[in-house]
C-alpha cells in the first residue's frame, strides 16, 4: 500500500511537469468562467413568472387564492411558486432550478427577512427548467475532469516507452497490476478534485457529495483505464495523439443528443459519458432516475476494462521473452 502511494506520488510529479496537464487545468478554469459569466442563464429568474400563496414578496408576483393552482402553474407553465407558512418560513416550489438561483431569488424577494432555511420543493417538469449554463455542467465534468486520465494516463505510459524506462520496469517486480492501479487511482483522485472544483465554483457546496465523489471516482477510473488500454500499442506520443483526439470526440457524442433531442441512436447509451452525464444530472439537479444503475454500470465497466487491460498491457508492455519494436 505504501509502495503504491509512492508510485502514485512520483507519477503525480511527472504529471505536474507535463504540458498537457496544464492545458487541461487551464481549460477547467475557462469552463468555470464560461459557466459562471459567459453562458446565459436563460430566462430564470429575472423574467420568470412568480406565483405566490399567502406571502408577499418584494418583487413583482401574482398572488393566488389556492395552493393547488400554484402547483399546477409550476408544473405546467414553469412558474416559480412561493408559499408562506404561519411561522414565517417560505416554501419554494419549482420545476428544476439550481439551489443557487433559489437562494438568490429569496434574497431578492424578502431581503434580510428571508428565512434561508426554507423548504424547497422541486417539481420536475422537464430538463428545460435548469438554467442553460448549469445544464451543461455535467457534460463539462465528463469531458474535462473525468477524461484527464484518458489523455494523461496514455501520455505517461507513452513517455515511459519513449525514455525506455518501460524496459527497466519490465524486468522489475512491479507487475502489470501495480502499474495500472497506481495510475488509475492517481487519476481517480485528480478526477474527484477537478470535478469537485467545477461544481463548487458553478453550483456551490449544496451538493450530494457522497454520490458525487463515488461517481467521479468511478468515472475517472474508467477513463484512465481506457486511456492506458488505448495508448499501450502506440510507439510514441506523436502517433497516438490524433487517434486519441478522435476517440475523445466520439465520447462527446452524447452531448449532441442534448443539443438535438431527435438524435438519439440506441448505441449512444453504450458510450460511458452518456451514463455518467445522466447520473450527474440526478446528483446535481435531482432530475432523472436513480443513480444506482449508473454506478453499477460504470463499476462493471471499470472491472471489465481492468481485466481486459491487465491482459493487454501485460502482453504489450510487461511480457518478457518477447521481441519489442
Amino acid at each position: 500500500m505504501n509502495a503504491l502511494l509512492a508510485l502514485m506520488l512520483q507519477d503525480c510529479k511527472r504529471l505536474l511537469s507535463n504540458a498537457l496537464f496544464w492545458v487541461i487545468s487551464v481549460t477547467l478554469l475557462a469552463i468555470v468562467l464560461l459557466v459562471n459569466f459567459a453562458l446565459p442563464k436563460s430566462l430564470l429568474p429575472e423574467t420568470a413568472r412568480i406565483v405566490t400563496f399567502q406571502t408577499t414578496p418584494k418583487i413583482p408576483a401574482e398572488p393566488l387564492q389556492n395552493e393547488a393552482e400554484l402547483y399546477r402553474l409550476v408544473a405546467e407553465e414553469r412558474a416559480i411558486g412561493l408559499i408562506g407558512a404561519p411561522d414565517g418560513s417560505i416554501r419554494v416550489v419549482h420545476s428544476g432550478i439550481s439551489e443557487k438561483i433559489v437562494r438568490a431569488l429569496i434574497l431578492q424577494a424578502y431581503a434580510q427577512e428571508a428565512d434561508l432555511d426554507m423548504a424547497v420543493v422541486t417539481l420536475v417538469a422537464d430538463k428545460g427548467e435548469i438554467p442553460f449554463n448549469l445544464r451543461v455542467l455535467p457534460m463539462f465534468i465528463c469531458f474535462e475532469a473525468l477524461v484527464i486520465g484518458f489523455i494523461l494516463g496514455g501520455a505517461l505510459l507513452l513517455a515511459e516507452k519513449e525514455c525506455g524506462v518501460i524496459r527497466a520496469l519490465r524486468i522489475s517486480p512491479m507487475g502489470v497490476d501495480r502499474y495500472m492501479l497506481a495510475k488509475t487511482l492517481l487519476f481517480s483522485l485528480i478526477g474527484i478534485v477537478y470535478a469537485g472544483l467545477m461544481v463548487v465554483f458553478c453550483i456551490g457546496l449544496q451538493v450530494a457529495w457522497l454520490p458525487f465523489v463515488l461517481l467521479s471516482f468511478l468515472g475517472a477510473a474508467l477513463f484512465a483505464l481506457l486511456g492506458l488500454v488505448f495508448a499501450a500499442p502506440f510507439r510514441d506520443m506523436n502517433s497516438w495523439f490524433f487517434s486519441m483526439a478522435v476517440l475523445l470526440s466520439l465520447n462527446m457524442l452524447p452531448a449532441a443528443a442534448y443539443a438535438a433531442p431527435s438524435f438519439f441512436p440506441r448505441w449512444l447509451r453504450f458510450i460511458p459519458s452518456y451514463t455518467l452525464i445522466s447520473a450527474y444530472e440526478k446528483i446535481l439537479f435531482d432530475i432523472g432516475e436513480s443513480i444506482v444503475p449508473a454506478v453499477l454500470n460504470v463499476s462493471v465497466w471499470c472491472v471489465c476494462i481492468y481485466l481486459i487491460g491487465r491482459v493487454w498491457l501485460n502482453k504489450i508492455l510487461f511480457r518478457r521473452q518477447k521481441v519489442f519494436v
Binding site: 505504501n2 509502495a3 503504491l4 509512492a6 508510485l7 506520488l9 512520483q10 510529479k13 511527472r14 511537469s17 507535463n18 513517455a159 515511459e160 525514455c163 525506455g164 524506462v165 524496459r167 527497466a168 520496469l169 522489475s172 517486480p173 512491479m174 501495480r178
Partner: peptide, 21 residues
C-alpha cells in the same frame, strides 16, 4: 542507454524504483 524518468529528479527516480521492491 541510460533510461530514467527525465522529468523526475535523480532522487525521485530512485524513490520510484525503491517502491517496486
Amino acid at each position: 542507454q541510460p533510461n530514467v524518468f527525465p522529468t523526475l529528479t535523480g532522487y525521485e527516480n530512485l524513490r520510484y524504483y525503491a517502491a517496486l521492491f
